[in-house]
Design a protein around this nucleic acid. Structure first.
Lengths: 191, 191
DNA sequence: TGCGCTATCTTTACATTGTCAAGATAATAG
DNA sequence: CTATTATCTTGACAATGTAAAGATAGCGCA
Protein backbone atom coordinates (compact mmCIF):
# COMPACT_ATOMS: atom_id res chain seq x y z
CA UNK A 1 0.00 0.00 0.00
CA UNK A 2 2.68 2.40 1.06
CA UNK A 3 4.50 1.94 -2.22
CA UNK A 4 1.61 1.62 -4.60
CA UNK A 5 -0.21 4.13 -6.72
CA UNK A 6 -2.25 5.20 -3.72
CA UNK A 7 -0.18 6.48 -0.87
CA UNK A 8 -2.35 5.31 1.98
CA UNK A 9 -2.20 8.25 4.34
CA UNK A 10 -0.98 11.09 2.23
CA UNK A 11 -2.86 13.79 4.10
CA UNK A 12 -1.00 13.33 7.38
CA UNK A 13 2.24 12.62 5.53
CA UNK A 14 1.97 16.01 3.81
CA UNK A 15 1.36 17.74 7.14
CA UNK A 16 4.34 16.00 8.74
CA UNK A 17 6.56 16.80 5.79
CA UNK A 18 5.43 20.41 5.99
CA UNK A 19 6.32 20.65 9.68
CA UNK A 20 9.70 19.09 8.98
CA UNK A 21 10.45 21.59 6.23
CA UNK A 22 9.42 24.52 8.44
CA UNK A 23 11.67 23.29 11.24
CA UNK A 24 14.65 22.59 9.04
CA UNK A 25 14.46 25.29 6.41
CA UNK A 26 11.97 27.87 7.67
CA UNK A 27 8.52 28.71 6.47
CA UNK A 28 9.71 30.55 3.38
CA UNK A 29 10.92 27.24 1.99
CA UNK A 30 7.59 25.52 2.38
CA UNK A 31 6.15 24.92 -1.06
CA UNK A 32 3.42 22.56 -2.16
CA UNK A 33 5.75 20.96 -4.65
CA UNK A 34 8.52 20.31 -2.12
CA UNK A 35 6.06 18.88 0.36
CA UNK A 36 4.69 16.64 -2.36
CA UNK A 37 8.19 15.61 -3.42
CA UNK A 38 9.11 14.83 0.18
CA UNK A 39 6.20 12.39 0.22
CA UNK A 40 7.19 10.88 -3.09
CA UNK A 41 4.07 11.96 -4.92
CA UNK A 42 3.51 14.25 -7.87
CA UNK A 43 3.24 17.98 -7.35
CA UNK A 44 -0.52 18.04 -7.84
CA UNK A 45 -1.32 15.17 -5.52
CA UNK A 46 -1.95 17.43 -2.49
CA UNK A 47 -4.98 18.86 -4.28
CA UNK A 48 -6.83 15.64 -3.53
CA UNK A 49 -6.59 16.51 0.16
CA UNK A 50 -6.35 20.29 0.34
CA UNK A 51 -8.21 22.95 -1.63
CA UNK A 52 -5.08 25.05 -1.92
CA UNK A 53 -1.82 25.85 -0.20
CA UNK A 54 -3.57 27.86 2.51
CA UNK A 55 -5.66 24.88 3.50
CA UNK A 56 -2.53 22.78 3.94
CA UNK A 57 -1.00 25.55 6.02
CA UNK A 58 -4.11 25.74 8.19
CA UNK A 59 -3.93 22.00 8.74
CA UNK A 60 -0.29 22.31 9.76
CA UNK A 61 -1.18 25.14 12.12
CA UNK A 62 -3.81 22.97 13.76
CA UNK A 63 -1.23 20.27 14.19
CA UNK A 64 1.31 22.64 15.74
CA UNK A 65 -1.33 24.25 17.95
CA UNK A 66 -2.18 20.78 19.25
CA UNK A 67 1.46 20.19 20.15
CA UNK A 68 1.51 23.60 21.78
CA UNK A 69 -1.60 22.84 23.83
CA UNK A 70 -0.12 19.52 24.90
CA UNK A 71 2.85 21.35 26.41
CA UNK A 72 0.59 23.86 28.16
CA UNK A 73 -1.73 21.21 29.58
CA UNK A 74 1.26 19.14 30.61
CA UNK A 75 2.67 22.14 32.47
CA UNK A 76 -0.59 22.86 34.24
CA UNK A 77 -1.37 19.31 35.30
CA UNK A 78 -0.73 18.31 38.88
CA UNK A 79 0.05 21.81 40.10
CA UNK A 80 -1.10 22.39 43.68
CA UNK A 81 -2.59 25.87 43.16
CA UNK A 82 -4.01 27.85 40.29
CA UNK A 83 -1.24 30.39 40.78
CA UNK A 84 1.41 27.73 40.36
CA UNK A 85 -0.42 26.46 37.28
CA UNK A 86 -0.49 29.93 35.72
CA UNK A 87 3.20 30.45 36.36
CA UNK A 88 3.96 27.05 34.88
CA UNK A 89 1.78 27.76 31.89
CA UNK A 90 3.56 31.04 31.29
CA UNK A 91 6.89 29.28 31.43
CA UNK A 92 5.76 26.59 29.05
CA UNK A 93 4.30 29.20 26.71
CA UNK A 94 7.53 31.13 26.40
CA UNK A 95 9.70 28.03 26.41
CA UNK A 96 7.75 26.47 23.57
CA UNK A 97 8.33 29.37 21.23
CA UNK A 98 11.78 30.10 22.56
CA UNK A 99 12.82 26.59 21.59
CA UNK A 100 11.49 26.90 18.07
CA UNK A 101 10.95 30.51 17.00
CA UNK A 102 9.84 29.30 13.59
CA UNK A 103 6.64 28.08 15.20
CA UNK A 104 5.88 31.53 16.59
CA UNK A 105 6.33 33.15 13.24
CA UNK A 106 4.38 30.38 11.59
CA UNK A 107 1.44 30.52 14.00
CA UNK A 108 1.17 34.25 14.62
CA UNK A 109 3.05 35.78 11.75
CA UNK A 110 2.01 36.11 8.14
CA UNK A 111 -1.69 35.55 8.22
CA UNK A 112 -3.20 36.73 11.45
CA UNK A 113 -5.02 34.37 13.68
CA UNK A 114 -8.42 35.78 12.80
CA UNK A 115 -8.43 34.00 9.47
CA UNK A 116 -7.20 30.88 11.16
CA UNK A 117 -10.00 30.97 13.70
CA UNK A 118 -12.58 31.64 11.02
CA UNK A 119 -11.56 28.59 9.02
CA UNK A 120 -11.51 26.41 12.08
CA UNK A 121 -15.01 25.64 13.30
CA UNK A 122 -13.59 23.65 16.19
CA UNK A 123 -12.31 26.74 17.94
CA UNK A 124 -15.70 28.40 17.84
CA UNK A 125 -14.10 31.79 17.96
CA UNK A 126 -11.88 31.28 20.95
CA UNK A 127 -8.26 30.33 21.06
CA UNK A 128 -7.58 27.13 23.05
CA UNK A 129 -4.52 28.42 24.93
CA UNK A 130 -6.52 31.47 25.99
CA UNK A 131 -9.41 29.29 27.16
CA UNK A 132 -6.98 27.31 29.27
CA UNK A 133 -5.61 30.48 30.80
CA UNK A 134 -9.12 31.72 31.55
CA UNK A 135 -9.97 28.47 33.30
CA UNK A 136 -6.86 28.75 35.44
CA UNK A 137 -7.56 32.37 36.18
CA UNK A 138 -11.13 31.72 37.30
CA UNK A 139 -9.77 28.95 39.49
CA UNK A 140 -7.31 31.43 40.92
CA UNK A 141 -10.13 33.82 41.83
CA UNK A 142 -12.05 30.99 43.42
CA UNK A 143 -9.12 29.66 45.43
CA UNK A 144 -8.36 33.09 46.81
CA UNK A 145 -11.99 34.03 47.35
CA UNK A 146 -11.73 37.07 45.09
CA UNK A 147 -14.67 38.87 43.55
CA UNK A 148 -14.15 40.71 40.25
CA UNK A 149 -16.43 42.19 37.66
CA UNK A 150 -16.32 40.61 34.23
CA UNK A 151 -14.54 43.65 32.91
CA UNK A 152 -11.90 43.51 35.63
CA UNK A 153 -11.41 39.84 34.88
CA UNK A 154 -11.04 40.53 31.21
CA UNK A 155 -8.47 43.22 31.82
CA UNK A 156 -6.39 41.06 34.13
CA UNK A 157 -6.59 38.15 31.74
CA UNK A 158 -5.45 40.20 28.80
CA UNK A 159 -2.69 41.63 30.93
CA UNK A 160 -1.39 38.22 31.95
CA UNK A 161 -1.60 36.90 28.44
CA UNK A 162 -0.01 40.02 27.06
CA UNK A 163 2.98 39.58 29.33
CA UNK A 164 3.39 35.94 28.44
CA UNK A 165 2.65 36.31 24.75
CA UNK A 166 4.73 39.45 24.54
CA UNK A 167 7.65 37.72 26.20
CA UNK A 168 7.35 34.82 23.80
CA UNK A 169 7.28 37.27 20.94
CA UNK A 170 10.31 39.15 22.20
CA UNK A 171 12.14 35.95 23.00
CA UNK A 172 11.64 34.91 19.40
CA UNK A 173 12.86 38.18 17.96
CA UNK A 174 15.95 38.38 20.12
CA UNK A 175 16.53 41.79 18.60
CA UNK A 176 16.77 43.26 22.06
CA UNK A 177 19.77 42.33 24.11
CA UNK A 178 18.71 41.24 27.52
CA UNK A 179 20.08 39.41 30.49
CA UNK A 180 16.94 37.34 30.73
CA UNK A 181 17.25 33.63 30.21
CA UNK A 182 14.06 32.92 28.37
CA UNK A 183 14.23 29.24 29.00
CA UNK A 184 14.06 29.74 32.74
CA UNK A 185 11.79 32.66 33.38
CA UNK A 186 12.07 34.47 36.62
CA UNK A 187 8.98 34.44 38.77
CA UNK A 188 9.22 38.19 39.17
CA UNK A 189 8.09 38.50 35.59
CA UNK A 190 4.77 36.86 36.25
CA UNK A 191 3.06 39.18 38.69
CA UNK B 1 12.54 64.12 -15.55
CA UNK B 2 9.57 62.42 -13.99
CA UNK B 3 8.40 61.13 -17.34
CA UNK B 4 11.66 60.38 -19.07
CA UNK B 5 13.73 57.26 -19.34
CA UNK B 6 15.15 57.89 -15.92
CA UNK B 7 12.53 58.04 -13.24
CA UNK B 8 14.18 60.60 -11.01
CA UNK B 9 13.49 59.18 -7.57
CA UNK B 10 12.58 55.61 -8.20
CA UNK B 11 13.99 54.28 -4.95
CA UNK B 12 11.57 56.17 -2.74
CA UNK B 13 8.75 55.68 -5.23
CA UNK B 14 9.23 51.92 -4.98
CA UNK B 15 9.15 52.07 -1.19
CA UNK B 16 5.98 54.18 -1.22
CA UNK B 17 4.32 51.90 -3.74
CA UNK B 18 5.27 48.93 -1.59
CA UNK B 19 3.70 50.48 1.51
CA UNK B 20 0.57 51.28 -0.46
CA UNK B 21 0.26 47.71 -1.69
CA UNK B 22 0.76 46.31 1.80
CA UNK B 23 -1.92 48.62 3.17
CA UNK B 24 -4.42 47.95 0.43
CA UNK B 25 -3.83 44.32 -0.47
CA UNK B 26 -1.73 42.86 2.33
CA UNK B 27 1.87 41.75 2.34
CA UNK B 28 1.20 38.55 0.41
CA UNK B 29 0.39 40.68 -2.62
CA UNK B 30 3.63 42.57 -2.54
CA UNK B 31 5.73 41.51 -5.51
CA UNK B 32 8.70 43.19 -7.11
CA UNK B 33 6.94 43.22 -10.44
CA UNK B 34 3.78 44.82 -9.11
CA UNK B 35 5.76 47.46 -7.25
CA UNK B 36 7.68 48.18 -10.43
CA UNK B 37 4.48 48.33 -12.47
CA UNK B 38 2.93 50.70 -9.93
CA UNK B 39 5.85 53.04 -10.57
CA UNK B 40 5.55 52.67 -14.32
CA UNK B 41 8.93 51.03 -14.79
CA UNK B 42 9.96 47.65 -16.08
CA UNK B 43 10.04 44.60 -13.84
CA UNK B 44 13.81 44.59 -13.48
CA UNK B 45 14.21 48.30 -12.76
CA UNK B 46 14.19 47.83 -8.97
CA UNK B 47 17.46 45.92 -9.25
CA UNK B 48 19.26 49.20 -9.86
CA UNK B 49 18.30 50.23 -6.31
CA UNK B 50 17.91 47.01 -4.36
CA UNK B 51 20.01 43.86 -4.39
CA UNK B 52 16.93 41.68 -4.17
CA UNK B 53 13.38 41.62 -2.90
CA UNK B 54 14.51 41.30 0.72
CA UNK B 55 16.46 44.52 0.47
CA UNK B 56 13.38 46.37 -0.75
CA UNK B 57 11.39 44.87 2.11
CA UNK B 58 14.04 45.96 4.61
CA UNK B 59 13.90 49.48 3.20
CA UNK B 60 10.12 49.49 3.57
CA UNK B 61 10.47 48.24 7.14
CA UNK B 62 12.84 51.08 7.92
CA UNK B 63 10.32 53.50 6.52
CA UNK B 64 7.46 52.06 8.55
CA UNK B 65 9.62 51.91 11.68
CA UNK B 66 10.36 55.59 11.22
CA UNK B 67 6.64 56.38 11.06
CA UNK B 68 6.17 54.22 14.13
CA UNK B 69 8.90 56.05 16.03
CA UNK B 70 7.39 59.38 15.05
CA UNK B 71 4.13 58.38 16.72
CA UNK B 72 5.95 57.19 19.83
CA UNK B 73 8.09 60.28 20.14
CA UNK B 74 5.06 62.45 19.49
CA UNK B 75 3.22 60.69 22.32
CA UNK B 76 6.11 61.11 24.73
CA UNK B 77 6.86 64.75 24.02
CA UNK B 78 5.66 67.33 26.49
CA UNK B 79 4.52 64.86 29.12
CA UNK B 80 5.01 66.19 32.67
CA UNK B 81 6.42 62.99 34.16
CA UNK B 82 8.23 59.92 32.93
CA UNK B 83 5.33 57.82 34.16
CA UNK B 84 2.89 59.78 32.03
CA UNK B 85 5.26 59.47 29.10
CA UNK B 86 5.47 55.71 29.47
CA UNK B 87 1.70 55.37 29.65
CA UNK B 88 1.35 57.56 26.58
CA UNK B 89 3.97 55.58 24.74
CA UNK B 90 2.20 52.34 25.54
CA UNK B 91 -1.05 53.77 24.23
CA UNK B 92 0.59 55.01 21.06
CA UNK B 93 2.33 51.67 20.60
CA UNK B 94 -0.86 49.66 20.72
CA UNK B 95 -2.87 52.25 18.82
CA UNK B 96 -0.39 52.29 15.97
CA UNK B 97 -0.67 48.58 15.29
CA UNK B 98 -4.32 48.43 16.19
CA UNK B 99 -5.02 50.93 13.43
CA UNK B 100 -3.13 48.99 10.82
CA UNK B 101 -2.55 45.36 11.80
CA UNK B 102 -0.79 44.76 8.50
CA UNK B 103 2.11 46.79 9.81
CA UNK B 104 2.46 44.54 12.84
CA UNK B 105 2.55 41.44 10.70
CA UNK B 106 4.90 43.13 8.28
CA UNK B 107 7.34 44.34 10.93
CA UNK B 108 7.34 41.43 13.33
CA UNK B 109 5.94 38.56 11.32
CA UNK B 110 7.60 36.55 8.59
CA UNK B 111 11.24 37.28 9.01
CA UNK B 112 12.15 37.90 12.61
CA UNK B 113 13.61 41.17 13.65
CA UNK B 114 17.07 39.72 14.18
CA UNK B 115 17.75 39.65 10.48
CA UNK B 116 16.34 43.13 10.17
CA UNK B 117 18.64 44.47 12.88
CA UNK B 118 21.64 42.73 11.38
CA UNK B 119 21.10 44.33 8.01
CA UNK B 120 20.62 47.72 9.52
CA UNK B 121 23.85 49.20 10.81
CA UNK B 122 22.01 52.26 12.03
CA UNK B 123 20.32 50.36 14.81
CA UNK B 124 23.64 49.05 16.13
CA UNK B 125 21.90 46.05 17.61
CA UNK B 126 19.18 47.84 19.51
CA UNK B 127 15.64 48.52 18.51
CA UNK B 128 14.76 52.25 18.50
CA UNK B 129 11.37 51.90 20.22
CA UNK B 130 13.02 49.88 22.96
CA UNK B 131 15.74 52.49 23.39
CA UNK B 132 13.07 55.14 23.80
CA UNK B 133 11.34 53.06 26.43
CA UNK B 134 14.61 52.52 28.28
CA UNK B 135 15.29 56.26 28.31
CA UNK B 136 11.84 56.92 29.75
CA UNK B 137 12.27 54.14 32.28
CA UNK B 138 15.60 55.46 33.52
CA UNK B 139 14.01 58.88 33.80
CA UNK B 140 11.24 57.29 35.82
CA UNK B 141 13.77 55.79 38.24
CA UNK B 142 15.52 59.14 38.54
CA UNK B 143 12.33 61.15 39.09
CA UNK B 144 11.21 58.81 41.83
CA UNK B 145 14.64 58.43 43.37
CA UNK B 146 14.66 54.67 42.90
CA UNK B 147 17.76 52.50 42.96
CA UNK B 148 17.72 49.25 40.97
CA UNK B 149 20.35 46.80 39.88
CA UNK B 150 20.89 46.47 36.16
CA UNK B 151 19.24 43.07 36.22
CA UNK B 152 16.19 44.42 38.03
CA UNK B 153 15.97 47.21 35.50
CA UNK B 154 16.22 44.80 32.63
CA UNK B 155 13.47 42.60 34.04
CA UNK B 156 11.13 45.53 34.61
CA UNK B 157 11.83 46.89 31.17
CA UNK B 158 11.14 43.61 29.47
CA UNK B 159 8.01 43.29 31.52
CA UNK B 160 6.68 46.66 30.49
CA UNK B 161 7.54 46.11 26.88
CA UNK B 162 6.07 42.63 26.97
CA UNK B 163 2.77 43.98 28.18
CA UNK B 164 2.65 46.66 25.55
CA UNK B 165 4.01 44.58 22.72
CA UNK B 166 1.86 41.64 23.71
CA UNK B 167 -1.22 43.84 23.78
CA UNK B 168 -0.40 45.18 20.36
CA UNK B 169 0.06 41.64 19.13
CA UNK B 170 -3.23 40.48 20.59
CA UNK B 171 -5.02 43.58 19.40
CA UNK B 172 -3.85 42.72 15.90
CA UNK B 173 -4.98 39.13 16.06
CA UNK B 174 -8.41 39.88 17.43
CA UNK B 175 -8.91 36.14 17.70
CA UNK B 176 -9.75 36.60 21.33
CA UNK B 177 -13.02 38.27 22.10
CA UNK B 178 -12.52 40.97 24.66
CA UNK B 179 -14.30 43.93 26.08
CA UNK B 180 -11.15 46.01 25.82
CA UNK B 181 -11.20 48.97 23.52
CA UNK B 182 -7.70 48.81 22.15
CA UNK B 183 -7.83 52.32 20.84
CA UNK B 184 -8.32 53.72 24.30
CA UNK B 185 -6.32 51.60 26.68
CA UNK B 186 -7.21 51.66 30.28
CA UNK B 187 -4.52 52.84 32.66
CA UNK B 188 -5.01 49.77 34.79
CA UNK B 189 -3.30 47.78 32.07
CA UNK B 190 -0.08 49.68 32.41
CA UNK B 191 1.11 48.92 35.94
C1' DT C 1 -18.11 -12.29 -9.75
C1' DG C 2 -18.04 -8.20 -12.55
C1' DC C 3 -19.48 -3.43 -13.35
C1' DG C 4 -19.23 1.18 -12.44
C1' DC C 5 -18.43 4.94 -9.15
C1' DT C 6 -15.39 7.71 -6.76
C1' DA C 7 -11.26 8.99 -4.38
C1' DT C 8 -6.62 9.33 -5.29
C1' DC C 9 -2.75 10.31 -8.05
C1' DT C 10 -0.15 11.74 -12.63
C1' DT C 11 0.68 14.50 -16.57
C1' DT C 12 0.42 18.56 -18.95
C1' DA C 13 -0.17 23.26 -19.25
C1' DC C 14 -0.25 28.13 -17.89
C1' DA C 15 0.32 32.51 -15.23
C1' DT C 16 3.01 34.74 -11.65
C1' DT C 17 7.13 35.57 -9.56
C1' DG C 18 12.30 36.42 -8.40
C1' DT C 19 16.47 36.82 -10.65
C1' DC C 20 20.05 37.29 -14.05
C1' DA C 21 22.39 38.83 -18.37
C1' DA C 22 22.80 41.78 -22.21
C1' DG C 23 21.84 45.85 -24.11
C1' DA C 24 19.78 50.76 -24.41
C1' DT C 25 19.64 55.40 -22.52
C1' DA C 26 20.83 59.37 -20.11
C1' DA C 27 23.41 62.00 -16.67
C1' DT C 28 27.85 63.37 -15.33
C1' DA C 29 32.78 63.84 -14.90
C1' DG C 30 36.95 64.81 -17.26
C1' DC D 1 32.76 66.31 -26.58
C1' DT D 2 33.73 61.78 -25.02
C1' DA D 3 34.05 58.13 -21.76
C1' DT D 4 32.26 56.40 -17.70
C1' DT D 5 28.66 55.21 -14.84
C1' DA D 6 23.98 54.91 -13.06
C1' DT D 7 19.66 53.81 -14.50
C1' DC D 8 16.27 51.42 -17.06
C1' DT D 9 14.46 47.80 -20.73
C1' DT D 10 14.17 43.38 -22.89
C1' DG D 11 14.48 38.65 -22.88
C1' DA D 12 15.20 34.51 -20.64
C1' DC D 13 14.97 30.90 -17.00
C1' DA D 14 13.64 28.23 -12.93
C1' DA D 15 10.42 27.77 -9.10
C1' DT D 16 5.88 27.98 -7.75
C1' DG D 17 0.52 27.70 -7.32
C1' DT D 18 -3.14 26.03 -9.69
C1' DA D 19 -6.38 24.12 -13.07
C1' DA D 20 -7.80 20.47 -16.51
C1' DA D 21 -7.72 15.94 -18.27
C1' DG D 22 -6.64 11.45 -17.79
C1' DA D 23 -4.82 7.09 -15.25
C1' DT D 24 -5.31 3.89 -11.33
C1' DA D 25 -7.27 1.44 -7.78
C1' DG D 26 -10.36 0.43 -4.09
C1' DC D 27 -15.23 -0.24 -2.86
C1' DG D 28 -20.22 -0.80 -3.17
C1' DC D 29 -23.76 -3.00 -5.49
C1' DA D 30 -26.00 -5.90 -9.11
Amino acid sequence: MADSYHHGNLRQALIDAGIKIINENGEENLSLRKVAAACGVSHAAPYAHFKDKDELIEAIKDNVTEKFMEKLVEAVEGKPTADAAIIAMGRAYVTFFSKNPDYYIFLFGKQNITAHLKMNKEYKGDYPPFLLLRRMYLLHLEENGLEKTVEEQEIELIKIWSIVHGMASIACMKGVKSSINWNDIDERLLV
